[in-house]
Design a protein around this nucleic acid. Structure first.
Length: 265
DNA sequence: CCACCGTCCTGGCTGC
DNA sequence: TGCAGCCAGGACGGTG
């Protein structure tokens, strides 16, 4: 579920409830949730640390602690909330207990999510590409990234080492806004097309953040950007630009939606 | 360098 | 109704 806009929404909503909290302990109900270090050491090392900041890098939530960094990746089905101490739900696999008797619950139906406790967040996020919404991410930078590879645009946008935070929904949305075919080779774009993609990426992500992300199916409640999607999940429905039906294909193993009329090869 | 596939998991939906 | 099969926002490792 969560891509950059959803993770950004989590960060903004959780920040007031988390920053300043001292972690009294953790409950690991499914220890494989912890990517590093081992569960025993994780428990011992995190106890007593205070959350001093909460930020986002790509699709990772990054909690700065007194001496370490706690990173959480929600993958497909992860959900986070701070609630008063209480009985955990079926899929609350990892729980951080705060000293004020509230707790941060990592609910994760499919158990794909992961938790990292490291000295330096770069140990986890070091390989990520640039943040698409950073001021330093210019159209020229995007042009360089695209020209350096010769891959179809869609899989390229999903590659977190190229660009951080874009997932399956927003890749489709940004490509449609830019009127670029998902299979278009990345090194074939004219400067004006690079600029269009750069603008559409930022517009798409910023708009989704403004809507608190997308809530699809039963996962991730709260966002309303699903009501503004232009192609994702709209196979067969009319393109909002030209009225022709949206097509659904599989590309690089991922479900892909586009308008064959607006986005030509 | 890149494409493709299986793998990690659960559960909702579809069609027989 | 029951149930097998398919599908899903992500990402990694192995193979060719």
């Amino acid at each position: 579920m969560p891509e950059l806009p959803e993770v950004e929404t989590f960060v903004r909503q959780l920040r007031p409830a988390c920053v300043g909290q001292r972690i009294a302990g953790v409950t690991l109900r499914w220890p494989r949730h912890i990517a590093t270090p081992g569960p025993r050491q994780f428990r011992r090392r995190i106890r007593g640390q205070v959350i001093t900041a909460l930020d986002r890098r790509g699709k990772f939530l990054v909690f700065s602690l007194t001496t370490d960094a706690l990173l959480i990746h929600l993958k497909m089905s992860g959900d986070l909330q701070v609630v008063p101490n209480g009985k955990p739900g079926k899929h609350d696999h990892t729980i951080f207990h705060f000293e004020d008797n509230t707790e941060l619950r990592f609910n994760d139906t499919r158990k794909f999510g992961r938790v990292y406790l490291v000295g330096n967040p770069d140990e986890v996020t070091g390989g990520l590409g640039p943040e698409p919404l950073a001021r330093s991410f210019t159209a020229d930078k995007l042009g360089d990234l695209l020209a350096a590879r010769r891959r179809p645009l869609k899989p390229l946008l999903l590659d977190q080492t190229v660009l951080a935070g874009v997932g399956n929904i927003y890749a489709d949305e940004a490509l449609h806004r830019a009127r670029l075919h998902p299979q278009r080779r990345s090194d074939s774009l004219a400067p004006v097309e690079v600029r269009a993609l750069w603008r559409s990426l930022r517009r798409t992500l910023n708009l989704a953040i403004r809507h608190n992300g997308s809530s699809i199916d039963w996962m991730y409640r709260g966002g309303e950007h699903q009501n503004h999607l232009r192609v994702y999940g709209r196979a067969g429905e009319p393109c909002l630009t030209c009225g022709k039906p949206i097509r659904h294909i599989t590309l690089g193993g991922r479900s892909t939606h586009f308008c064959p009329h607006c986005q030509r090869l």
